[in-house]
Design a protein around this nucleic acid. Sequence first.
DNA 1: GGAATTTATGGAATCGGTTTCATGAAATCG
DNA 2: CGATTTCATGAAACCGATTCCATAAATTCC
Lengths: 348, 348
Amino acid sequence: MAKSIRKKLTERVTITDVAHTAGVSKTTVSRYLSGQYHILSENARNRIQEAIRELNYRPNQMARGLKQDRSYLIGMVIADITNPFSTAILRGAEDVCKQRGYSIMVCNTDNDPAKEREYIFMLQSRRIDGLLINTTGRNNQFLRQLAEEHTAIVLVDRKVPELGLDTVGVDNELSTKEAIRFMINRGYEQIAFFTEPLEGVSTRQERANAFKDILIQYGFPVADLYEADLQQAEPLLKQLERFLESSREGKRAIFAANGVILLKLIHALKHKGLRIPDDVAIAGFDEMEWTDLIGPGITTVSQPTYQIGVTAMERIFRRLEGDHSPSQNIAFAGKLIIRGSTPSVKGL
Amino acid sequence: MAKSIRKKLTERVTITDVAHTAGVSKTTVSRYLSGQYHILSENARNRIQEAIRELNYRPNQMARGLKQDRSYLIGMVIADITNPFSTAILRGAEDVCKQRGYSIMVCNTDNDPAKEREYIFMLQSRRIDGLLINTTGRNNQFLRQLAEEHTAIVLVDRKVPELGLDTVGVDNELSTKEAIRFMINRGYEQIAFFTEPLEGVSTRQERANAFKDILIQYGFPVADLYEADLQQAEPLLKQLERFLESSREGKRAIFAANGVILLKLIHALKHKGLRIPDDVAIAGFDEMEWTDLIGPGITTVSQPTYQIGVTAMERIFRRLEGDHSPSQNIAFAGKLIIRGSTPSVKGL
DNA sequence: GGAATTTATGGAATCGGTTTCATGAAATCG
DNA sequence: CGATTTCATGAAACCGATTCCATAAATTCC
């Protein structure tokens, strides 16, 4: 009887309920919800407003999205969510989304192409409007598919030229060259470059190539480019030892291709009882909250991470608004922050 | 004509398309999608599978969710997404969600109740099934409303007793007492406690109270409890100076109530040219990737952050599965990691 | 002052799935 | 062998919004 009907009715408040209590049709309420106030009478507007308040109504986004073929959802696929670099980007991206009423769904892949694929499928099922991805580069086929379904995709940090998508990141060549040139000018005679495996990751490749180029340009031998797999600590330690054995104290320096490997290297140096910069100088990509606190301060290349997130998300919205211009590669300048970990070599 | 029809048809592949090409009804396809294989003939199963593959079909989660009144979405409202503490929890939560086919929507509030409220409304519109929240404590009314609409809510880190919700965090009293007691036993005669403003945040209050309790228990005066607003750097610096002026080198120590303030304090000490631990000893909550690298290493209270995220999310799913048992407060033990920043006082 | 236009509104179809219920065929039973 | 149960399937209603189209009333036009 009445009791059970009421129960059913109050279970979830729908647009129909609002229409009833306001004494208008669903259509009119819908118009109110989408902000088309100018075609509503003041009377209707007020009564709807009152009804919504009274019933504490919140429109169902799934119903809305279904009909409009829009989810107001952006996917963000990140290799490692605990990496401060990633979260700074996320922060920027999130701020832009919030402002527009979009929400971000985070997906953590651990650089695993299989996980990445699963997430792409899931996001596809959710009909995301946009995707911001730090890709493994192994699921290009599926990304292309997504792009064909009108999802606006922006690659962050890592490029995949064959996809022809917008990318946002830092100018790796420029920044790496600036940093290595700086170290050469400071008098270091042997510089090692440590990176995670290059295969398939454009960012790492660009930095490694810039390193090689600049060494060649200055007539240095390119002997110390180390690709370390960080899953196990051993390889990195071994490679570090190899470098230290082959080089002379006071004349050598290490450059880390990103913040993760920079941290690992500093750990390894501490573990071996080596001092910065006396035993070895060090610098690397990614400014982090602790880089000025360790020893004499670590020289780093700072990326405008928040800005990268903001810009990437803005490109997504530009695309969603119908911009069909050719894809852009947006590269911000990195900033070299010089600290005590890379002093001038004695005797210069 | 045919062309335009085809275009329309291939625009988005729907369950109807799959049904047609497989030569069965939507109902049958739906059963396949929800894994009810046992009631399908092998023939139908194969043809549907083939059709899905051929058309590259992905079911629309919005349509699904609309009918089922389930979004398979979990909201995660965080005060500061760039805080490593938060992302570690997110990581744990995300892993659990992925496994169950749920997705997480991240919301960054900056500890702003207004932003938090906006997010709660948005998440409500999306009909999230669960919410994991690090709340400002200023939107209890809306959280209660959400809970009434069958959203499973778990409070992380910060409690709000009046809401009667599940909470997951660390045992603040126990860990704080252990840490302060340790410092007292090491011979420090004056210990300062630095925290962000206590008002409304249970975690901070619990830690501050534990600090006071243990000092009283040991017969120390409670003179140095500093509430610093971190928005501007000044207050913290002033308070730090006040403490340093009132205390004696070699006999004093600082305890930071969380990782953020710990970092700020270390920065401030460096800024003032003070050495750890010679000029002042320091310890604090939250183990971070750099705490063992700064100076002699910083003594910290480590929280099982990943585990907190996993546990919180598991409680959400337990609730979604229909568990109506009384609410739980789950408190993990923190772990005191002793490092060089808190050596024994000379002469002990 | 009647025709044409504008304005405010609502009925009904629709989005893409799930779920209820009905049905015909095959299998099991006494 | 007829009655009953099981099995595989599909038609149609439904979830909660938006949107197309129709319509009555009010306004403007000549």
